[in-house]
Amino acid sequence: MAADAPTRPSPTVTDDSAVFWDAAAEGRLVAQRCAGCGRLRHPPRPMCPACSSLEVEIAELSGQGTLYSYAILHHPQHPAFEYPVIAALVDLEEGIRLLSCLTDVSKDDVRIGMPVHAHFVPTADGPLIPVFRPTEDS
């Protein structure tokens, strides 16, 4: 393995979560949209909690959001990651929240409320996953 090969673990994909991870693997950020009432939901699940519909559509998301919260992880350290990891909760403009992490920013420059947008990075087994970086000139 090359020294700079991605080491972060690939997602654990289940039948319920595949809709998100399969799209992410191709560099697309999506969420489930209920075909019955139009409500977006994340993490994915089989039934709409609002109308009980089992029918879903796939909604493409813009990847634009704001930082709802963050955490700068120093310890314990896992060899698959570079530290500190900046964990992030991002409120997407479509109205759902994602847990991810931030790249391309110094830990001292992270601010709750800052605009961020998604980009994709590879995992050890190949699939891409969505992470976020600050939106420039915000």
Partner: peptide, 22 residues
């Protein structure tokens, strides 16, 4: 946890910290 693990959010402290910082 499957929604945390690929992003390096691996421990109880890291899960709870996101709430604590807010």
């Amino acid at each position: 946890m499957q929604w945390c693990m690929p992003f390096g959010v691996l421990t109880p402290a890291s899960w709870m910290a996101l709430n604590s910082v807010r």
